[in-house]
Design a protein around this nucleic acid. Structure first.
Length: 519
RNA sequence: CGGGAUGUAGCCCAGCGGCUAGGGCACCUGCUUUGGGAGCAGGAGAUCGGAGGUUCGAGUCCUCUCAUCCCGACCA
């Protein structure tokens, strides 16, 4: 029998994997193919801007919903501030201007008029241009200045869900687009300590969210001087390792000191009668998290969604031939949805969806796989007769299916989902552990990133060493940046002796610092 | 914003200056199939990214332009 006969005689034989190329072959291209195959988003007619498709948006809504509750639980309220920021507002904080000036969209006119050829041209120039918000510190600061008179008006604890625009020159779906969706929390406090506590509290919220909801382990830490938010005193971040071992900044939290309060004049009469500037913070995560989910868990068959984030956790594929069978099968599926909804996973009813589209079964099955639905269930007349269901799991091979008694399947659902959620987190943790290395010198760093596997390097570094040109050059050569100074470096599980000097030769005290290539 | 590559049907691609621009997948119709990314037959779908130009003749050559991808620079 010819060895290759079976394959060559059936040209329609599907590829082994749903996604081509595989992660190992070409990771960036794999990512783009997954975004497409999982029906999450697509490039739009507007350069650099994406259309988020229903499945991708549903995923974002899950992220929003969970985070929003965590914000409310920590005492915050939602509000909404303008998209347009007067140019002079942005100008108030010098570092802030410098940080964002290069990527601002500017609105200069407020009317269109037809010229002689009937072409619409901008008319009615504005006296003062508006900037489309790249972030809202200044407009919100101006507003808080009016709201805050007394220490009794503090703290102000507000979050907004909004879109922002940063004119990026090299966009990538979800990871870096010209317009994106995010939340930005902005708070004002009476004391520095309280504001610092808020900054750290929200960093903890992001850490908890990333690990418990996204199953994405993160390293929480403080940014080095060169990586700090423009205008911030301290910037904290959560950094995650993607499957190509590069770092993704998944959220940031900033302690602004009194910089913005001074720039926007947020001042109040204190308990002692003296007038002081407030202490402010801001913190945010964006639709970039969707990219993080894909790159943390996706495999060569598409997206793999953690059960807590999956818009629905179970896809039910009804199988029938005749109309009579259809009625019977659908009724059974609907009762199955209801039974699952009576089960509670992570404090919510289990979400199941019946895919009764007029498509071939195999097609629907593969779509569910590519979209990353945790559980697939096939229900046909045979299953109904046996009161059983045929179950596939996204964390197992596509054709690996079990037949389970319906009652047992339903009763075990919460445990099954919890197991999958825990499994994803554990696997991601393991990847990070296997690819994190202690680095004691610049030579070791070069070896790791030039010849070795890369990943996360934990190295002693002075907090402002990367402001020095020679350090920036050394890092640039390796395409590496300082991601953060971890708050708990020991949790990374590598052995880095204390008291080592900065690998970049700074004479100042070094701190264990995470170095990596990054998105 | 610099360097490179690519734009031909919804998707992936073939097409040496010369007949009416092809194929695969997807789509529509019919039949056959049905626990699986189905088979056969038929059908529809393209101003070849856009604008100029060279030529008897341009998908093919030239110029400009737009978009996408890769590499840089930049990126809280």
């Amino acid at each position: 029998m010819p060895l290759y006969g079976a394959r060559s005689t059936r040209m329609a034989t599907p590829p082994r994997n749903a996604i081509s190329p595989t992660r190992a072959e070409d990771y960036p291209e794999w990512y783009q193919q997954v975004v497409k195959a999982a029906d999450l988003a697509e490039a739009s007619a507007v350069r650099g801007c994406m259309v988020i498709k229903p499945w991708g948006y549903a995923l974002w809504e899950r992220i929003q919903g969970q985070l929003d509750r965590m914000f409310k639980d920590t005492g915050h309220s939602n509000a909404y501030f303008p998209l347009f920021i007067p140019l002079r507002y942005l100008q108030r904080e010098a570092d802030h201007v410098e940080g964002f000036a290069k990527e601002c969209a500017v609105v200069t006119h407020h009317r269109l008029e037809a010229d002689e050829e009937g072409q619409l041209v901008p008319a009615a120039e504005l006296d003062e241009p508006y900037v489309v918000r790249p972030t809202s510190e200044t407009i919100i600061g101006e507003t808080y200045a009016k709201w805050v008179q007394s220490y009794r008006d503090l703290p102000v604890l507000i979050n907004q869900w909004a879109n922002v625009v940063r004119w990026e020159l090299r966009p990538r779906l979800f990871l870096r687009t010209v317009e994106f969706l995010w939340q930005e929390g902005h708070t004002a406090h009476e004391t520095a300590e309280e504001a610092q506590q808020e900054t750290r509290q929200m960093l903890d919220v992001y850490t908890t969210f990333a690990e418990e909801h996204m199953a994405m382990p993160v390293v929480a830490g403080e940014k080095t001087a060169a990586e700090r938010f423009p205008g911030a005193v301290d910037t904290y971040t959560v950094e995650a390792m993607m499957q190509d071992r590069k770092a993704l900044q998944a959220g940031t939290s900033h302690f602004m000191g009194q910089n913005f309060a001074r720039a926007c004049d947020i001042s109040f009469s204190g308990r002692d009668g003296a007038i002081s500037h407030a202490w402010t913070t801001s913190w945010g995560v964006s639709t970039r998290l969707v990219g993080g989910v894909i790159m943390s868990h996706g495999d060569d068959d598409g997206a793999v969604l953690p059960p807590r984030l999956a818009p629905h956790q179970v896809t039910i594929l009804p199988i029938y031939k005749s109309d009579e069978q259809r009625a019977e099968v659908l009724a059974y599926c609907q009762s199955l949805v209801a039974s699952l909804a009576e089960q509670s996973y992570a404090g919510e009813p289990v979400r199941a969806d019946i895919d009764d589209r007029d498509l071939r079964g195999g097609e629907k099955n593969w779509q569910a796989i590519k979209r990353g639905v945790p559980i697939r269930v096939e229900v046909g007349p045979r299953d109904i007769a046996a009161d059983a269901v045929s179950v596939g799991r996204r964390d197992r091979a596509p054709r690996d299916r079990d037949s389970l008694p319906r009652a047992a399947f339903v009763a075990a659902m919460a445990d099954t989902l919890a197991g999958m959620q825990a499994g994803l987190l554990e696997r991601a943790r393991q990847l990070r552990a296997e690819n994190t290395t202690a680095v004691r010198s610049l030579d070791e760093l070069r070896e790791l990133f030039n010849d070795g596997e890369g990943g996360f390097a934990l190295a002693p570094m002075a907090p402002d060493a990367d402001l020095r040109p020679e350090t920036a050059a050394a890092l640039g050569e390796l395409k590496v940046s300082a991601r953060c100074m971890p708050l708990s470096p020991e949790a990374l599980g590598v052995d880095l002796p204390t008291d080592l000097p900065c690998v970049f030769g700074s004479t100042e005290d070094a701190r264990p610092t995470l170095l990596a290539r990054a998105y």
